[in-house]
Amino acid sequence: MGHLSRLQDKYRAKGFVVIGITGEDRATNLRYMLHNDPAFTYRVALGSAPGYETPEFPWSVLIAPDGSVAWQGSPARMSVKKNLKPLLAQVRKPTAAERDARAAKMLAFANAFLADHFFVRAESAFQALITTYPASEAATTAKARMKSLLVVDGARVEYDAQNAIVKLVGGVEAPNPTSKRVKNPERDAAKLKKLAQQYAESAPRAARLALEWADIYSEVWK
């Protein structure tokens, strides 16, 4: 599965997006990823896609820039030269309206984390928006939100506590590309449970985050 990160990283600038899709829940999938591809950089969508026939797993579907299915089959049969590159040649620049719509979606996405007091995730989502669509109106709003991120009472304590968990886990939402395979998940789960207790009163959102990761690490993938 590491090949998917490499493939996306190589062709991302040309307009290539990888989306892993699974019907499993977040914790189950993250356990699986920690074991199989801990440095993944692509998106994982948790849900279903009843319109597709998947005769086997894994199963790849390539979607052209016009939104049509261009190719599907076993991932091993996908040829970068024959199947992917001709589609990349069709990639077009987004229109101004499309850029604005995407920037607005990214802003709404980041705002939802802010409303949930998940400050470190909000910060990374605002930053992604500013980097991707720097000239957009949404990016101007994102910059203002970044400046006032921690003005709410207790936000600084929450932010620091959340960052301590992120440091332990290796990434804000999923382990970051430089993190190593988890060597001792039981020990990490115990540490995270202890942090959850420590933050229960002072930083409840961080405590919840610690428990989510403790749950992920408490079961070793076999």
Binding site: V17, F57, G67
Partner: peptide
């Protein structure tokens, strides 16, 4: 949604652990 990615090439990789 996939519509949000229109204009780009998307690889959907279905898996089941």
């Amino acid at each position: 949604t996939l519509a949000d990615f229109r204009g780009e090439v998307v690889l959907l990789e279905f898996w089941n652990s």
